[in-house]
Design a protein around this nucleic acid. Structure first.
Lengths: 145, 145
DNA sequence: GACATTAGTTTTAATTTGCAACCTTATTGA
DNA sequence: TCAATAAGGTTGCAAATTAAAACTAATGTC
């Protein structure tokens, strides 16, 4: 890691990646979004090594993406639950999921994200301008804030 | 990498992550979105080791996210340009950028993404249902397609 | 012809990962 | 009561990945 120190990089993207841009971290977050909360469930569902899982869970707790909660009366079992910050990654993961639906599965993905109530697929995530018009990459710029 | 083989995982998210879910790959894609095209420019702007850059550029070309183009007449200089598939990651990176703007920079990021023409900031990326209503994590489900 | 630039590859060392085994504290059950 | 099992780790070691630096090789420039 000789990245131009991600923790002080002024680019939000780099800083965001420094917090969650790691395969296992993102898989753990996905798993948490599916409802998984226990160490051994993460371990079995993901097939991840226990030391790596332990390390990633600790980092995600440090970064306030997961919260470690006492479950069961006597403090020997725990649950890892998404915080608001963690839940807010939903849109990021959804955008990536849709990208892969389109480009990896050629628009024929095995699973679809649907609205629980109507059971209809969610819309394609987009970048919109202030008037609600879709924007392409070449139509945007980075401005000092 | 003893991940339950990402290349055959039926989850789009896992498959997407297997293609771009790597710190350097995403930084290279960001850099490409800013307009960088040459090996040495990527190298200098990112401060990445040359062997790692070489490896990641090759993988991104393999995955059809970048295209390697002869620049200059005689074939000793090249450009790496985003493909449509690569450009389509714009919304994913924008969602992550906005997440970090909010949660890492507490809504006071050093830079903002703006619409080139009006110079106004882009809207917050959202997950919308079929009627255009914003959806939260707990309002969606995964359905076989 | 001498030197610089571009785009790498090679080599070596440091770091990270994966795997297996072990540990500690409950809880179950015979 | 005592063994067995489960949860949630930690430790040690081998293997894989990464970083930094040096080295190539093909033009291009003075």
């Amino acid at each position: 890691m000789n990245r131009p120190n991600p923790a002080t990089d002024p680019c939000s993207l780099a800083r965001g990646l420094a917090e969650v841009g790691d395969w296992w971290s993102l898989m753990i977050i996905r798993e948490a979004m599916y409802g998984t909360r226990r160490f051994s469930d993460f371990q079995q569902n993901l097939g991840i090594a226990r030391n790596i899982l332990s390390d990633r869970l600790n980092k995600l707790v440090e970064r306030d993406i997961l919260r470690k909660v006492d479950a069961g009366e006597h403090g020997t079992r725990f649950e890892y639950r998404l915080t608001d910050k963690g839940r807010d990654l939903f849109v990021v993961l959804t955008a990536l999921r849709q990208w892969a639906d389109k480009w990896v599965f050629q628009n024929e993905p095995p699973f679809l994200l649907v609205d629980r109530i109507s059971d209809r697929p969610v819309q394609q995530v987009q970048v919109l301008d202030a008037d609600g018009q879709p924007l392409k990459l070449h139509q945007v710029a980075i401005a000092a804030s």
